[in-house]
Design a protein around this nucleic acid. Structure first.
Lengths: 373, 373
DNA sequence: GTGAAAGCGCTAACAA
DNA sequence: TTGTTAGCGCTTTCAC
């Protein structure tokens, strides 16, 4: 039943060569006569030989495994995490590496475990915090590693993230190009700005800087993750600045609720107000109207992370901040600003789609129920 | 910089005992004097010893790794997949196992690779199809394995899934308890019923059987994943059976679109028509109104899968179909049926909610009943 | 209760 | 161009 596994010795015997010949034939680190090469290949094929990973790891000091630590219940969106994880696995395989799945709750000790035991020879960490407790371990072990997210002190580390500064600027650019002259940024909760931050502040910087450059009036507010808070923040903004017609949101709840809330305040999106979100595509596409947005390039993050790790395994130095250029996709929530309060009968918006069920949707103001945090 | 790793020999020397003593002290397969025990523990701690995984695997013929194969771009929802994966990783660690992440595109060959190379000594497969090409490999390698989903021929295999038959019945029960006497099931696309199926048919069976038992009129239609098709199916249903007031949906697009579509046809949900969905919580919660639903118990699937694998590693036989009891959560999309066409002025519907969508919750009498077989 | 030593299967240095 | 062999670090049998 459980027959002994095929070893390199079996292959050698079968091909009538020595083990080293088999070995070198399989990884071309030595010139082999085509004839011998062929015999070995045949033997491998016919015996269905797969080198034993443990032995290989032990002898070569390389496990050919990348450990990927995913957040357990972070602020990140599950689909985004999954997309990154999948991209990591795919790309890793393409480079002959396997992926070990670790959860964030294993913490620094988990990293120590998998590295000290030689289970993994490279690390990819998601959901990196500003003062991440795992970072000291990274320096300790000195193995190839990539952080997805930017910590406060990234000295000597390879970090990868979306360029949120540019993303913030891109949102302003987009709104400006549509004629909006007064814009507001609705960000994440205060917590996000404190703890997990980095990206939130970077977005803000880009947003403010570009606004100033373009001579556009800009405000910003942090905002908790409930529809109520979004409503509160919104009314505060409009109270202080009734002329705001462009909104940038970096807050999933706000993203999906804002169009509805604006509608209730007689500012139909996109006819009278434009909304640009920085959020996962999923959120942008599931909102009504679909949101113009800068998306998180999940797949590319995963792919790049592996490539950076591989470069390090090759001995290259990749330390530094690798920022992916954001790309903004225009959808239904942004449009040319009209100076006069729009004509009531304006049916030019995407909302006019014929058979679309959207028309039937009730007062969208109440769209999404209270969700947590 | 890259100092040599601490080995069991180092520990032995430090503790002034033999390697075997260290070994046995660490896994209690031999009686050790408390004094010696303590010395070893100290050495381990002070040297920060972590057994080398490769060597361990090679010598013991056990990698202590479970391979988890996730669908690449299946019909399954990304968040659900991620939740299962996370639960698998968590539970596995709790059992001293690590998790290797494989993507579906590695196919049968991928399974052969990780098993033949001794990288993994157990398998968990997600997104199992009726005639899954990976199944033959499972029989070949004979390693512990759990399938999440039910294939046509599950002989000798350990399968795990939600009990969709009971889920279908539970939906009928719920609608019946609310007074609905004429119900319709809107299922997935025809493809789903063909290819990836299993679960779709099982739901249907439960739905029809229970309807008959309760003397309720029932129809069912498959439905593609576009809003247009949902609209089409809906109008067809109402044409043939104007009296249908209860809907069961197992189709994410239909789930989120149905309430709106019904609203357009002057059947406000839940006042005049009730909708019960079989879908991930995410979908149910993001719809408006929030859907009464039977959810996919992602976490439990992941946890149970690992437990079943561990049982097999222990030598226990777990072959068979392990079906999780579904649980139905009543939300805002289902309510007591009113026989007279609702009063037009009925402002009790959820659409009237002011600041809190919850107020709209219908007849709270609806107990969240989880029924079992 | 403790120790010695023979593998496990592969890699890589050394020979031929 | 090909073959031989000494480890890699741990497990486990056998001896004390």
């Amino acid at each position: 039943m459980t027959r002994r596994a095929v070893t390199i010795v079996d292959v050698a015997r079968y091909a009538e060569v020595s083990v080293s010949t088999v070995h070198y034939a399989l990884n071309g680190k030595r010139r082999i006569t085509p004839a011998t090469q062929e015999r070995v290949q045949r033997a491998v094929r016919e015996l269905n030989y797969h080198p034993n990973a443990g032995a290989q790891a032990m002898a070569s000091h390389r496990a050919s495994v990348i450990a990927l630590m995913v957040p357990l219940r972070g602020d990140m969106h599950l689909p985004v995490i999954m997309e990154i994880a999948t991209a990591v696995a795919l790309t890793a395989r393409r480079h002959g590496q396997d992926v070990l799945l670790l959860t964030g709750d294993e913490g620094p000790e988990g990293l120590r475990r998998v590295t000290a035991s030689g289970r993994a020879d490279a690390l990819i960490l998601m959901d990196v915090e500003l003062e991440d407790r795992r970072i000291p371990v990274l320096h300790e072990v000195g193995l190839p590693a990539v952080l997805i997210g930017l910590p406060t002190d990234s000295t000597g580390l390879t970090c990868l993230d979306l360029d949120f500064r540019v993303a913030g600027a891109a949102c302003v650019d987009h709104l400006a190009s549509l004629g909006h002259r007064d814009v507001a940024l609705i960000g994440g909760s205060r917590q996000v700005y404190d703890r997990h931050t980095g990206f939130a502040e970077r977005t803000l910087t880009g947003f403010l800087t570009r606004s100033e450059q373009l001579g556009i009036r800009a405000t910003h507010h942090s905002c908790e993750g409930s529809v109520e808070s979004v409503a509160g923040v919104l009314s505060r903004i409009l109270e202080e600045r009734p002329c705001v017609t462009g909104f940038v949101v970096q807050n999933e709840v706000a993203a999906s609720a804002l169009p509805g809330l604006l509608g209730r305040l007689a500012r139909i999106v996109p006819a009278e107000a434009s909304v640009v979100a920085i959020c996962p595509d999923q959120v942008a596409l599931h909102s009504f109207p679909q949101l113009t947005s800068v998306s998180l390039p999940a797949q590319e993050l995963g792919r790049r992370a592996v490539e950076l790790v591989m470069a390090q395994l090759r001995g290259e130095v990749t330390a530094g901040e690798h920022l992916l250029a954001p790309s903004l996709t225009a959808r239904e929530s942004s449009a040319q600003r009209v100076s006069t309060r729009a004509i009531q009968s304006s049916t030019t918006g995407p909302a006019s789609a014929t058979s679309s069920p959207r028309t039937a949707r009730p007062s969208p103001s109440v769209a999404s129920g209270a969700s947590s945090v």
